[in-house]
Computed example of a mutant assay.
Amino acid sequence: MNSFRRHRRLRQSGAIRSMVRETRLDVTDLIAPLFVVEGENVREEVPSMPGVFHFSVDRLEEELSELVDLGIPAVIVFGVPSKKDAVGSEAYSEQGIVQRAVRRIKELHPDLCVIADTCLCQYTDHGHCGVVKDGVIVNDESLELLARTAVSQARAGADIIAPSNMMDGFVRAIRQGLDEAGFEYTPILSYAVKYASSFYGPFREAAHSAPQFGDRRSYQMDPANAREALREAASDVEEGADLLMVKPGLAYMDIICRVRERFDLPIVAYNVSGEYAMVKAAAERGWIDERGVVMELLTGMKRAGADLILTYHAKDAARWLRGGID
């Protein structure tokens, strides 16, 4: 009689492996990003993100139809304005690019969940996520502008507000602003744990949001810190967040796990632009199996504790899920 366990018994066929699979990735777990720009008839690929495009509002329909046909339930809208100023006024303009895009999306597909990214960096001429005075990003004065932005996005029809600025007290300010404006049932997806990561480069190209001086390390988190992530998330829960995001995902699966163990709110992992670009570059050179790597990465984030995954791979992943992942 052998004295060892035969674990391989449960790996002998695709059917058995599927039956005992502990973590399941589904198309309903995916959130697809949209970059919306000013102008007409614009559909331009982002050079550092193959397969990701800038769309003008009038060209959104073709992309949205594809997403809906694939069964992807939600999009997050990032706006790229043509005008910028010191206080990011286009972020909270009723005719801002995000506001117009949200209205158009809800006209075309009212059941599609529309998430509005709520930040100022794309809209300020200095590229920072708040008001700048004497070279310092001023926290409390920035909160009022963020709340105004959130309210204008909710008024345009956004189903979820997703503040990404990492100012202290931003969830409380936005929750109060939404409630006072009559949007007490609009949820907040907080970028609760957002690191000052080197993986954001392609996004900054796509969103035209690189800071014009310094960096964002005074408000985004030090990548070396884990306990700080729990403090940040705890503050956002106390202030009224409905969902919590960890960003980036790939290098921070331990953080996803810790946040999942500590809090019972839905957890979102952001599979960010640099992670996407690395996979695409390696796949184009034939160095990796793109489908296998992408599905393994997304499944890993789900296994770590993410309920939802915001990913630039959303359309490809949805297609691959239709065919099974074994």
Rank of each mutant, 00 (worst) to 15 (best):
E38Y: 11
M253V: 15
R227Y: 06
E284S: 14
A181K: 02
K83R: 15
G324M: 03
E239V: 04
G305S: 04
K315R: 14
L108R: 11
L30W: 05
R322I: 01
A173F: 02
M19P: 00
L112V: 08
P248G: 10
I115Q: 08
A306N: 06
H7M: 09
V98R: 10
V138M: 08
Y252T: 14
D168S: 11
F203R: 05
A224E: 15
T118H: 03
G286V: 06
G286F: 08
Y276L: 02
E44N: 05
V279K: 06
P163Y: 04
V294T: 12
L230V: 11
S65W: 00
I256C: 11
E40P: 00
G127V: 14
M253Q: 15
Q212W: 13
K133C: 12
C129L: 15
H128I: 11
P223K: 10
Q95H: 12
G274T: 08
L120S: 11
H7E: 12
T124K: 04
Y219H: 13
S3W: 12
S65L: 01
E290C: 05
C113R: 05
L230G: 09
I31D: 10
L230S: 06
E228G: 10
V272D: 01
L250I: 11
L30K: 04
Q122R: 12
S82K: 15
V80W: 08
V237W: 02
R148K: 13
Y219L: 14
P163K: 08
M221N: 11
L146C: 02
K83L: 13
E62N: 05
S56M: 02
R303E: 10
I105D: 05
A162E: 07
E205Y: 05
E66M: 04
V42L: 06
R285F: 03
T118I: 08
F170S: 13
D242V: 11
R204N: 06
V75P: 09
K280R: 14
I97D: 08
V102I: 13
R217P: 10
G201Y: 13
N2E: 14
V27D: 01
A304Y: 06
A224N: 14
L244I: 11
M253R: 15
Q122N: 10
Y200E: 02
V52F: 03
A173E: 03
E40W: 00
N139S: 07
L189V: 03
E94R: 14
R258M: 12
N225C: 14
L25W: 00
L120Q: 13
V171Y: 01
D215C: 07
S197E: 01
S142M: 08
R319I: 06
P187V: 08
G169Y: 04
P110K: 10
A91S: 15
R5F: 12
P50G: 00
A192Y: 01
I160R: 07
E261I: 01
K83I: 13
L120N: 09
L244F: 06
S164F: 10
E205I: 09
I31H: 06
E107W: 03
